Computed example of a mutant assay.
Amino acid sequence: MSWSDKRRHWQQKLLQLDWYLWLGLVFLFAVLLGLIAAGRQLHSVLNDADKLPIEAVAIKGERLYTSDREIQQALQSLMQRSFFSADVTQVQQTLEALPWVYSASVRREWPAKLKVYLQEQQPIAHWNGDAWLNVQGEVFQAAAPPGLEKLPLLAGPDDMGSEVLTTYQLLESLLKINGFELASLSLSPRHAWHAMLDNGILLDLGREDNMARVQRFIDVYPILAKQSKAIATVDLRYDTGLAVGWDDAQQESR
């Protein structure tokens, strides 16, 4: 084969390769366009609440204070989204913003349901008059439902809720086994403790040695109870001994 024949042969090969290359590029471009179109269509379907609406929200967990209506109102705008576009994190945060909800977990369940597990606040005491303290010692705000009137009254700085609760539980246990009921306990901004018994006696405990000082009151109470006057306050801030304030008004009314 002459040189000119070889050159023509290779030119034909290159021309053929060029056609293959262009055909391949055209095919690849068509595939890409198809994928883009399909992706847009899928995105439209997944985000179209009319095509994939959320049909139900299943709520689990014991609820005493949070009604179905409150949950429905809280989630009303979020339920306008499709099953896939609904933000479960936002649903969770919205539910946890309800006053009596402590925590919420949310997950999707195919084909059109959200499953929600709620854990409500467990109030253990009134806090500062208009708030609540939960079993974790955390302060929360919520309207007062019926049935919680007999909870103890605790008070103090909001960041000391856990310490106030722990101290209350210790003192309440000590007093109860000795025949007393602790109705309220407060911690002042200067960290001084004041305890009110259900019989109306106020114990001034000071800043330290709460248990020892309450025990001192318990030991002395049988002697104090024999007096003709009613006890109003007992100041236990001394290293030894105590000071008693008598309820003269109550004595006069007898």
Rank of each mutant, 00 (worst) to 15 (best):
D159P: 03
M160T: 13
D159Q: 08
A143M: 00
L170P: 02
S162I: 01
G179C: 07
L154H: 11
L174V: 09
S162N: 14
G179K: 15
D159M: 11
S162H: 09
G137C: 10
Q141S: 10
L153F: 13
V139E: 05
D159V: 15
E172S: 10
T167Y: 00
E181S: 04
P152S: 12
M160H: 11
Q169R: 15
L165S: 04
Q136W: 06
Y168F: 12
N178C: 04
T166R: 11
Q169G: 04
P152T: 03
E149G: 10
E138F: 01
A142I: 00
Q141A: 14
K176Q: 14
P146S: 15
E163V: 15
S162P: 02
A155V: 07
K176S: 15
L148Q: 12
N178E: 05
P146D: 12
T166I: 06
Q136V: 05
M160C: 10
P152C: 12
A144P: 00
N178G: 08
M160A: 14
A155G: 15
L175E: 04
D158P: 07
I177D: 12
D158K: 11
L151W: 04
A142V: 02
K176I: 02
L175G: 01
Q136S: 09
E163P: 02
L151M: 08
D159H: 15
V139Y: 08
G179L: 06
E163A: 12
D159I: 07
A142F: 02
Q136P: 01
T166H: 11
P157K: 10
T166F: 06
G147R: 09
M160L: 09
P157M: 12
L148C: 15
V164S: 01
Q141T: 01
L165Q: 05
F140D: 12
G156R: 02
F180T: 01
L174T: 13
E149F: 11
A143I: 00
L174A: 10
L153I: 05
L151E: 07
L170Q: 14
P152V: 04
